[in-house]
Design a protein around this nucleic acid. Structure first.
Length: 566
RNA sequence: GCGCCCGUAGAUCAACUGGAUAGAUCGUCUGACUACGGAUCAGAAGGUUGGGAGUUCGAAUCUUCCCGGGCGCGCCA
């Protein structure tokens, strides 16, 4: 249904049949910058002029004539400087478009891919906080989007349940258990996690009563660690659920290590000659007193575009986090997806090159692997920056955020920016019920259209196509044109992994709808329901039904509700 | 010092991935309420796209050098 794609293919074929050889990559059919130029802008004259060494306007004239001879749906075909062919459809085209408009199929891509999408992967040592929300929502919506356009997405969460942090976590829970059971004061400044949530976990462990004797830490630490981890993951999954997020698969780092996947993977890299014993240079500008040269097992990531080689083994002989991650990505590759996407937070951006490097090394550059980084979220309240206390353990959790502003607002606002830009999130704004709040604005459009459907209660499944011709007003054609941009929006969003385009599109669509609605206030003939022409009512309701379909699809992808009334 | 991201209207951000006269919202100013849901709409003002140079038919977008902001920088994960 992407008319730009359709006509691009048509025009390229037409040109080739008439011995114009044009580069598919460079040629485009797009919306002209100005509506007065028409509906489609074809840039072939510009592209062809250099290879043909002739005036783009003359080439444009020839192309325009060709199109004129072969297609009858255009009202005007004009050549414009510096070298565009601008085409305007007859209204009949738009009525046909509206009549057959069907968004429910969803499938837009030609080639359906299997996609591995990893996101969130927050440390399982505490609840999700606001900082995790953006990546979580971005990843989730991206997954929905890719599914919507016809791919098969596995949403995956990598649990970092291995390494030193887990010991500290177990110790922290232990300290909380002693605090509850024996009134022993919780020690500060021992590197323990101070968060209040540990009390809940400790409480829950005591309640489950699987550990009878807490007196000797060493004898119970493994069991306690595992149980605490399970509790923490339950907590995180609940937090995710409150954000409307559900992963398909959870992969445990610990299990990867226990199954010897790390050593197996490193052998593969060894065979590829990507591993060596060496000494890393001291990083400049980082005054680390403890630094001393050390020979260790390294991965030749510089061979794959990284800035320095990366350590695989710690001085105590255990694997580094990165080594485990290499194994994890090897495991991903083993499962053979057409595409792999990692969503990372801004604080992990420095990690990106080595990940790409290890995937390139393991797959011999064959894997389609892409990392998307979400920049930080700055919190605001009443227009003032909202500072979280530096005191450890004091942060706003995802759950609290959802409870105070609602899941719809969190999801919409977290995605309402390009992921490359930092994001300002205002607590007050998102709960406002005004135009200033884009979530509300779009949802309000949904409610208004539902209201019309309720009042008219027409069955339009067998509507006469002819009756759509009554939609003669400029704004009605404009709405149909906006609908035609929906699949283009999907295409672009999915192709570039930029779901932020969706809320922008929905806002625009809602905006035109609200204008249309208000037109009836000044000019009674524009009233949708209070109209004497029953055929016109049908046609208009049909149009609004399609608008609602798109709003619903869009909000569904965003995981935001499309209310019937508000 | 190095790497990644950002810099667009007073503020917050878009801009179909190199296209034509750079668009929204808020704020400011002017209008429309006995309402098919005014929680809305119509209109106005507001720009040397941080700065310089380069690439070409054409640059907010690509290259390069400055300036400013954010994140990160051998065995934490």
């Amino acid at each position: 249904m992407n008319i730009f794609k359709i006509y691009k293919d048509k025009f390229i074929l037409l040109l080739r049949n008439n011995s114009f050889d044009c580069d598919e990559e460079k040629v485009s059919v797009d919306t002209p910058r100005q509506a007065s130029f028409g509906d489609l802008a074809f840039n072939a004259p510009l592209i062809l002029s250099s290879s043909l060494k002739s005036n783009p306007l003359e080439i444009g004239k020839k192309i325009a004539d060709l199109i004129k001879e072969n297609y009858s749906e255009f009202e005007t075909i004009e050549v414009a400087k510096p070298g565009f062919v601008n085409l305007k459809f007859k209204k009949e085209f738009w009525y046909n478009f509206l009549f057959s408009f069907d968004d429910s199929k969803g499938k837009i891509v030609n080639i359906s891919k299997t996609i591995n999408l990893e996101y969130v992967s927050a440390n399982p040592t505490g609840p999700l906080h606001v900082g995790h929300c953006r990546g979580a929502v971005y990843g989730d919506i991206l997954g929905n989007l890719l599914n919507f356009v016809g791919h098969k997405v596995i949403k995956e969460y990598y649990i970092n349940d291995y390494g030193n942090q887990i010991h500290m976590f177990a110790k922290s829970v232990y300290a909380r258990v002693l605090e509850i059971k024996e009134g022993k004061e919780f020690p500060v400044n021992e590197g323990l996690y101070p968060g209040e949530y540990l009390k809940e976990i400790a409480q829950s462990l005591i309640k489950k009563n699987k550990i009878s004797n807490f007196s000797n830490y060493d004898s119970i630490k493994n069991q306690l660690g595992e149980m605490a981890m399970d509790e923490a993951m339950i907590m995180i999954k609940n937090d995710l659920l409150s954000l409307g997020i559900k992963h398909d698969l959870f992969i445990s780092e610990k299990e990867l290590v226990q199954n010897n996947l790390v050593s197996k993977t490193l052998k593969i890299l060894e065979r590829k000659n990507c591993i060596y014993e060496g000494v890393l240079p001291k990083p400049k500008g980082n005054e680390n007193e403890d630094w001393e040269p050390r020979e260790q097992l390294l991965f030749k990531s510089t061979k794959f575009g990284d800035d320095v080689d990366r350590a695989l083994k710690k001085s105590d002989g255990t694997w580094t986090y990165f080594a485990n991650d290499v194994a994890y990505h090897s495991y991903k590759l083993d499962r053979k997806f057409d595409k792999y996407i990692n969503v990372l937070g801004a604080d992990h951006a420095g990690y990106l090159k080595r990940l790409k490097a290890c995937v390139d090394a393991l797959s011999d550059f064959k894997a389609d692997f892409e990392c998307k980084v979400c920049q930080l979220v700055k919190l605001f309240k009443s227009g003032e920056p909202y500072k979280m206390s530096k005191r450890a353990g004091d942060f706003i959790t995802a759950k609290e955020l959802v409870e105070s502003v609602g899941v719809d607002a969190v999801r919409f606002m977290m995605i309402y920016r390009s992921n490359d830009s930092q994001l300002d999130f205002d607590f007050d704004l998102v709960t406002e019920k005004t135009k200033e709040n884009p979530v509300f604005y779009v949802q309000y459009a949904s409610a208004r259209i539902h209201s019309i459907l309720r009042k008219t209660s027409l069955d339009l499944t067998n509507i006469d196509k002819q009756c759509l011709r009554l939609l003669d007003a400029e704004i009605e054609i404009e709405i149909i044109k906006k609908l035609s941009l929906w699949s283009k929006c999907m295409d672009l969003s999915a192709k570039n992994l930029e779901p932020h385009r969706i809320p922008y599109y929905l806002y625009d669509l809602a905006s035109i709808f609200h204008s249309y609605w208000n037109l009836g206030k000044e000019y009674p003939e524009y009233r949708i329901i209070e109209n004497e022409n029953s055929q016109l009512i049908k046609a208009r309701v049909y149009l609004l039904e399609k608008v609602l379909t798109v709003i619903k699809s869009g909000l569904l992808i965003l995981g935001v509700s499309a209310p019937e009334s508000m």
